[in-house]
Simulated scan of single mutants.
Amino acid sequence: MSMSSAETAYAMSTKTKLRLWLRLLKVTRSVENDIREKLRVEFDSTLPRFDVLAALYQFPKGLRMSELSGLLKVSNGNVTGIVDRLVKDGLIIRTPVPGDRRALRVRLTKRGEEEFALQAAAHEQWIDDLLSDVSMNEAENMISSFDRILVEMHGTKSEEA
Score class of each variant (00 low, 15 high):
Met3Val: 00
Met3Thr: 00
Thr8Lys: 07
Thr8Asn: 05
Tyr10Arg: 04
Met12Ala: 12
Ser13Asn: 07
Thr14Cys: 03
Lys15Leu: 13
Thr16Asp: 07
Lys17Thr: 04
Leu18Trp: 06
Trp21Tyr: 14
Arg23Met: 12
Leu24Pro: 00
Leu25Gln: 04
Lys26Ile: 05
Lys26His: 13
Val27Leu: 12
Thr28Asn: 13
Glu32Tyr: 06
Glu32Arg: 09
Asn33Met: 13
Asp34Val: 03
Glu37Ser: 07
Leu39Phe: 13
Glu42Ser: 04
Ser45Asn: 04
Thr46Cys: 02
Leu47Gln: 04
Pro48Phe: 07
Pro48Leu: 05
Ala55Arg: 00
Tyr57Glu: 14
Tyr57Pro: 01
Phe59Lys: 11
Gly62Trp: 10
Met65Tyr: 01
Met65Asp: 03
Met65Val: 05
Met65Asn: 04
Ser66Gln: 13
Glu67Asn: 06
Gly70Trp: 06
Ser75Asp: 14
Val79Gly: 02
Thr80Tyr: 09
Thr80Ile: 04
Gly81Pro: 01
Ile82Pro: 01
Val83Tyr: 08
Val87Leu: 06
Asp89Met: 05
Gly90Ile: 08
Leu91Lys: 02
Ile92Asp: 01
Arg94Glu: 12
Val97Phe: 06
Gly99Asn: 09
Asp100Ile: 10
Arg102Tyr: 14
Leu104Met: 14
Val106Trp: 03
Thr109Arg: 03
Lys110Ser: 12
Arg111Tyr: 03
Gly112Val: 02
Gly112Phe: 00
Glu115Phe: 08
Gln119Gly: 01
Ala120Phe: 15
Ala120Tyr: 15
Ala121Arg: 15
His123Val: 03
Gln125Glu: 13
Gln125Pro: 00
Gln125Ala: 09
Trp126Met: 08
Ser132Lys: 13
Val134Ile: 15
Met136Thr: 14
Glu138His: 07
Ile143Ala: 13
Ser144Phe: 11
Phe146Met: 09
Asp147Lys: 03
Asp147Asn: 15
Ile149Glu: 09
Val151Trp: 02
His154Ser: 05
Gly155Glu: 09
Thr156Ser: 11
Ala161Tyr: 09
